[in-house]
Write a protein that binds this DNA or RNA. Structure first.
Lengths: 217, 217
DNA sequence: GCATTTTTTTATCGATCGCTATACAATATG
DNA sequence: CATATTGTATAGCGATCGATAAAAAAATGC
């Protein structure tokens, strides 16, 4: 790993000819291509053209197509990932709703490919290595697991009914996310996506505020 | 079109060498391949091997890869299509529930590829012709339109509340179907898919049986 | 029989795939 | 300066892509 030890005092001084392109900018361009076309349909030509470099530079900097995709997937997860909108919402319901809303908005942005890169990739990795397929599946499962954990926390903190099946509820909203992604790819309008999100959120279980003084927390 | 005029008295007698393979069986094999791999990832080699024929026979019988896919898509829609479970259910809710349940069961069958062929194809047609992409999108929209029509019928027949937005509700369940397909491809268990279906059906609006003598119909 | 028609098999075609060998350019160290 | 080291650019590798030309094979019409 240790990518040039970018911390500390500007690192040492690399010996040979310096790289003439911005690695992160090139990676961002690769994300765009993989996002739009999926893994297999994105050719090295597509990638090098978008990244503004030649094949040898790509292979020297990123390894091969599969490793480049893995880095692109990580970058995607980090910048557009499912964890982002989770942080500051006080309730599980708020967190899930924010995630879905964020997704619906993001997926229907005009300036980048529609749909979720991982959902896209999952469908276009039929001929890819089993390792890559596994990584993709794990990334998609990570999203569901994040939701499950957040819901479970909600149960512990009392803003979600105690008898809620966190796993099943996360499954449901994970399915919604996947569906939103596919719908967005098919050109469904943002308004329609948002309406679906709102509808799906009606299923989020509410705590019954009967007599019990919600002393759970 | 007129495919040999298969009606009437056994048709005429074709002059040349008779075809040595069953066209429909070959098409069924092609469906299987496209279903599992998507459009682009399914190579001619994959197809000819599965169909048990050589490339020239494929091209003579089906045109080219794109036309073969279109025929395969039609065959898929007809045999596993979304219209099937619609027919005899008396209520819109029953029809939608049957469709979702059918989907969840079908998508997680072990003997054929998981997920929906059209959802799959939509993600793997990035380099395909715009015509093909349009056809795929239309087939996916047809599913939603079927649902919308069935819900609207339910409104007219009184088993769905009159103030229901049929289009938005169809959008929602269409999103569910797409999500189920992706989840199924990722290996989600049938049990989990079924639980999600059940949860989604809780959102189907029920008619309030107050005083009003449901004289709507 | 022989000519005609259509499908089959075999052997590719040119284009593109992911990837790299090689030569050259640009920087560091000495 | 020379030398080492690293990145870039050109060109092309073998493999596979979708699609076909050519010839042999199997049927009908005469």
């Amino acid at each position: 790993m240790k990518t040039r030890d970018a911390s500390a005092p500007k690192a040492a001084k690399p010996r040979g000819r310096p790289r003439s392109f911005d690695r992160e900018a090139a990676l961002a361009a690769a994300v765009e291509v993989f996002w739009r076309k999926g893994f297999e349909a994105a050719s090295i030509s597509d990638l090098t053209e978008a990244m503004g470099i030649n094949p040898p530079s790509l292979y020297a900097a990123f390894g091969d197509k599969e490793q480049l995709f893995l880095e692109a997937a990580d970058s995607y997860s980090r910048s557009r990932g499912d964890e982002c909108p989770y942080t500051d919402e006080p309730t599980a319901r708020g967190a899930i709703e924010k995630l879905l809303t964020y997704m619906a908005r993001e997926l229907s942005e005009g300036d980048h490919p529609r749909g979720c890169m991982m959902v896209m990739a999952a469908a276009t990795s039929a001929n890819a290595s089993s390792r890559l397929q596994k990584v993709i599946a794990e990334k998609r499962n990570a999203s569901r697991e994040h939701m499950r954990a957040r819901i479970k926390r909600g149960i512990e903190e009392g803003d979600v009914p105690a008898d809620t099946d966190a796993g099943a509820l996360a499954d449901f909203y994970s399915t919604i996310v996947a569906g939103l992604s596919t719908s967005a790819r098919d050109g469904t309008t943002r308004k329609s996506l948002m309406a679906t999100v709102e509808r799906a959120m009606q299923l989020f279980p509410a705590v019954v505020k009967r007599k019990r003084s919600l002393a759970a927390a």
